[in-house]
């Protein structure tokens, strides 16, 4: 990112909870409280607080390097795997602080699934990709059924039902990404985190993923990082705009795009930087 306009450390203006009318009743799936992430001395995410309502699709946008992925990865403890990373603050999930010392990251990751930017299927069969999570987590039930349900949920079943035993690496990029979504759903998480899931895909595959997210919203809370503002506008209910590690604005998606309250947001969505 080049030549950031305005003050070096912009001051966040917007409160953690958005005026999320239709989501109020369902409560919050996640409450992020004053979360900071450091990589060594680099302060990558700065005191972010926001509420993620249950069964909402929340988009995180912002120029590259502003800390979207870092914030997302601290929600399911993936940052534990980065040696230099240190996370402070609280991520409340059903009243428990997921970042707390007594919480096992393995448990967190089973409850909060993640899909990555580049499709990363295991070099195994389609079936084994989906079955891996349920197997290692010792989930009860008929495995064939779990695999079929998950693939159906990811809108992939019809395309792969005749080749479940074939390598997942033979699928197209878009199919691979939907397989990764199916794989994440197979362990029955409550929240799904997606980090630019369509950035490596063509427009048709992207449209399929977006349609799928809308479908999944009935059962899951979804947080999606995207650098594509049209995508955020198309799929999300709420949008969080991040800038230089801070949460600048968090609001109902329509409002963010039609009536941004912060100058940086406006600059970003009108394409003045990023």
């Amino acid at each position: 990112m080049s030549a950031a306009p305005g003050p070096a450390t912009p001051v966040p203006v917007v409160a953690p909870a958005p005026p999320a009318g239709r989501f109020k009743a369902a409560g919050n799936a996640l409450e992020i409280r004053d979360v900071s992430v450091y990589y060594g001395d680099v302060h990558a995410v700065k005191n972010v607080s926001l509420d993620i309502p249950t069964r909402a699709i929340v988009a995180m946008i912002g120029p590259s390097g502003c800390g979207k992925s870092t914030l997302l990865r601290s929600l399911n403890r993936m940052n534990d795997l980065v040696v230099s990373a240190r996370v402070e603050g609280q991520v409340l999930f059903r009243g428990e602080n997921l970042i707390g010392r007594g919480v096992d990251p393995v448990e967190v990751r089973r409850r909060i699934g993640m899909v990555f930017q580049k499709p990363n299927p295991f070099p195994k069969s389609i079936y084994d990709n989906v079955a891996f999570g349920p197997r290692i987590n010792g989930m009860p039930g008929d495995m064939d059924e779990i695999v079929e349900t998950s693939l159906r949920q990811a809108a992939l079943w019809e395309e792969v039902k005749h080749r479940l035993r074939e390598s997942a690496l033979g699928l197209s990029g878009g199919q691979q990404q939907r397989l990764c979504i199916a794989r994440a759903l197979a362990v029955k998480p409550e929240i799904l985190l997606l980090d630019e899931p369509a950035s490596a895909l063509d427009p048709i595959a992207t449209a399929k993923i977006e349609e799928l997210l809308k479908e999944l919203q009935r059962e899951y809370t979804i947080v999606i990082v995207t650098h594509n503002m049209q995508q955020a506008a198309r799929v999300s209910d709420l949008t969080a705009f991040m800038y230089l590690g801070r949460l600048m604005e968090y609001n109902v998606t329509d409002d963010i795009f039609t009536n941004p309250r912060v100058r940086e947001t406006e600059d970003y969505i009108t394409g003045r930087f990023g």
Binding site: N76, M78, L81, V106, E107, R109, R110, G113, M114, F116, K118, N120, P121, F122, P123, F132, G133, I136, N137, C180, R183, A184, V187
Partner: peptide, 20 residues
């Protein structure tokens, strides 16, 4: 990315090492 995929599904370190 293979390790990340495995951890993100709730695999432990040994399960990730052993299976992937």
């Amino acid at each position: 990315s293979i390790r990340e995929a495995s951890y993100a599904l709730g695999a432990s370190r040994w399960q990730t090492t052993r299976h992937h």
